[in-house]
């Protein structure tokens, strides 16, 4: 369930915490395992992480369902997380989200048919002076316009 490579990455995180506090690494461990499994967590992968960190399955499930950055349904290869909070809203985020939805032919929360892209509306990403903005995977894109969005999205593969 957890690859050797993933275990190595998880071990790196475990080292940051005091002896016996390896469950501190659960948030990263879930991300690492998620990344290896189509960007998605399953009941079994959560249990596997819990077992690896020697914590109850339900405790790992609590974490996996509390935080936003875990997916429990199929998502695209690229996840566009579009901020729709106040500063971005004031700068036209809603129209741009609509634009993106039309362009991709999906609603927020859905995945494109080819499985390439999914779109999520999210709360403030802490880049409000660059509003409107979104995040694709690890990267922030700020001061978005419809044209800019087209360019960025067209570049995804």
């Amino acid at each position: 369930m957890i690859s050797d490579n993933a275990k190595k990455q998880i071990d790196h995180w475990i080292e940051k915490y005091p002896q016996g506090k390896q469950s501190s690494a659960v948030m990263e461990a879930l991300k690492i395992v998620q990344a290896e499994n189509d960007n998605q967590l399953t009941h079994d992968s959560i249990q596997a992480v819990a077992d690896y960190l020697n914590m109850p399955g339900i405790a790992a499930a609590e974490v996996a369902t509390f935080y936003e950055n875990y997916n429990h349904k199929p998502v695209g290869k690229h996840i566009i997380r579009f901020c729709h909070n106040i500063s971005c809203m004031l700068n036209g985020a809603d129209d741009l989200i609509a634009h993106l939805e039309t362009k991709l032919g999906v609603k927020t929360g859905e995945v494109t048919k080819d499985g390439l892209i999914s779109v999520k509306k999210v709360e403030c990403l802490g880049a409000c002076v660059g509003a409107p903005m979104f995040q694709i995977n690890d990267k922030y894109y700020e001061n978005l316009t419809a044209d800019k969005i087209d360019d960025i999205v067209d570049g995804l593969q």
């Binding site: 109850p56 339900i58 405790a59 609590e62 509390f66």
Partner: peptide, 25 residues
């Protein structure tokens, strides 16, 4: 469960209004 039974079987998943008390297994 976690303090007396010594096995955490029930937990609270989700957050906010979606907080749901349930077992994992």
């Amino acid at each position: 469960g976690s303090e007396i039974a010594g096995m955490m079987e029930m937990g609270g998943t989700g957050r906010g209004e979606d907080l749901k008390i349930e077992p994992f297994l």
